[in-house]
Computed example of a mutant assay.
Amino acid sequence: MKAITLDSFGEADVLQLTQVPDPEVRPHDLLVRNRAAGVNRADLNQRRGAYGRADFGDSSLMGLEIAGEVVAMGSEVRGFAIGDRVMGIVGGGSYAELARFDWRMAMRVPEGMDIVEAGAIPEVFVTAHEALVHLGRLQPGEKVLIHAAAGGVGSAAVQLAHAVGAKVFATAGAAKHEEVRQLGADVLIDHRSQDFAEVLQAETGDAGVDVVIDFIGAPYLERNVRALATGGRLVQVGLMGGAAGAALPLDRVLFRHLQIMGTVMKSRTAEVKQAMTRRFAEAWLGHFADGRLKPVIDSRYPLAQAAEAHRRMESGLNVGKIMLLP
C-alpha cells in the first residue's frame, strides 16, 4: 500500500509518499480502506521528532484518525461486517491507504454522512467532549471560555458547549470571528488585539466563567485561573505556547475552590481511549445524524500532498480540520 513515511525528522518536506507492507490483521482489529485522515498537531510534533520512532499501538506511521470501509476483520471482532463505514481514533497509521485499529475504538459513520466529513470527527470531538463535558462538567446555563476556538478541537468544543446550553466565550483571530460565531459562540475575543481577561471581567462583572478550555499553556495560565468563577474548572488540553514560566496564583485556586485538570489523547491506554470513545458516541453521535452537530473542514489534500497539509496547519490560517484523502 501507499503511505506517508519520513527518513528523518524536520520540516514538512521530509514527508514522502512510499510503498510499505499492508498492516497485518490482529484478532481484535478492523482493517479499513481509508477514505479520509485528519491532520492533528500531534502529527507535526511527530514529524519534528518529539516522539522519536515510537509505535503507538497500531502503526509507527503517522496519523491518528480515519474514516473508511471495513475490508477485513480479526477473529475477535463483534458487531461489524465487511463493507461497514466506520470512523475512529487509531494508534498511528492513518496516513496510508489501509489502517488497522481495535474494533472497540470504532464508531459507525452516521447514515447519509459524507465519509470525508466523518473523518473530521473522531480526534477533535472525542477530545472536546472529554475536556468540556466529562472533565469540565459543563452544565446548561454555565459560562465557558474556549481558547483557539477556530482550530479543530476548539471548533468542536464551541459546538458542544452551545449544544449543552452554555454561554460561550471564544478567542480567535478577528478574521475567523464570523465563522466561529456561526458554530455557536456568543462573545468573540480577538487574541491579538484584546486581553481576554479584561473582556471577561467586563462581560461577567468580575464573576468569571465556570469552565476554561485551554490549548496555549504557560502564557495564559495566570489569566485563565483569575478568569474562573468560584468552583470553576480549568482543563488544559495543549501547550502550544509552552510549559515553562507559568505563574499560578495559588491564593485564587484556594479561595475560589478551583480545579485544574490536564488531558491528552496520545498517551492514554487503549482501555481509557475506548471508554472516551464510548462516552462521546453515546452522548453525541445522534446529533451528527440529524445535523445538529457538523464537522468543520478547512481544506482537503490528496495523501501525496501531506507536506502541504502540514504547512497549512503551521500557517495558523485554518478554521476546522485539515483532511488528507488517501
Rank of each mutant, 00 (worst) to 15 (best):
L31W: 04
V164A: 00
L254E: 07
F255G: 10
D190R: 01
N45K: 11
A275Y: 06
V133I: 05
A120S: 14
A37T: 07
T5K: 02
I146G: 11
S59F: 03
D22P: 08
L221P: 00
R300L: 10
V71M: 06
D102S: 03
I146V: 15
T269V: 08
H310Q: 15
L44S: 13
E308W: 06
R100M: 05
R85S: 14
A229Q: 10
K321H: 02
L61V: 04
L258D: 09
V39R: 09
V39W: 09
G154E: 00
Y220A: 02
M73K: 14
V25K: 02
G93P: 02
A72K: 02
R192F: 07
T5S: 01
Q305L: 12
A218G: 08
S94T: 01
Q194I: 13
A289W: 06
E111K: 13
E271K: 15
G262S: 13
G136Q: 03
G92H: 06
Q16W: 01
V164D: 06
G291N: 09
L17I: 00
A275N: 10
G10T: 13
E178A: 15
L250K: 03
L31G: 04
P140Q: 15
A197V: 05
E123W: 14
Y301Q: 14
G119V: 00
R78D: 10
R226W: 11
A306C: 13
A175F: 10
L138H: 08
D206Y: 12
P27E: 13
I89P: 08
A148W: 00
A243Q: 12
T263K: 09
E271T: 14
M265N: 13
S193G: 03
R26S: 10
L98F: 00
L138W: 11
D55I: 07
T263P: 03
N45V: 07
Y220Q: 01
I297A: 02
H162I: 05
A283E: 04
H147M: 13
R311G: 10
R292P: 01
P295I: 00
G241P: 08
V168Y: 02
V237C: 08
M87C: 12
A149L: 04
D186L: 01
A309W: 09
I4F: 03
H310S: 06
I121D: 08
G245K: 12
R26V: 04
R104W: 08
W103Y: 15
G68M: 04
G241F: 10
I4W: 02
E178I: 10
V199I: 15
A54R: 15
G316C: 11
P110G: 13
A156S: 08
A99C: 13
M107A: 10
R26D: 06
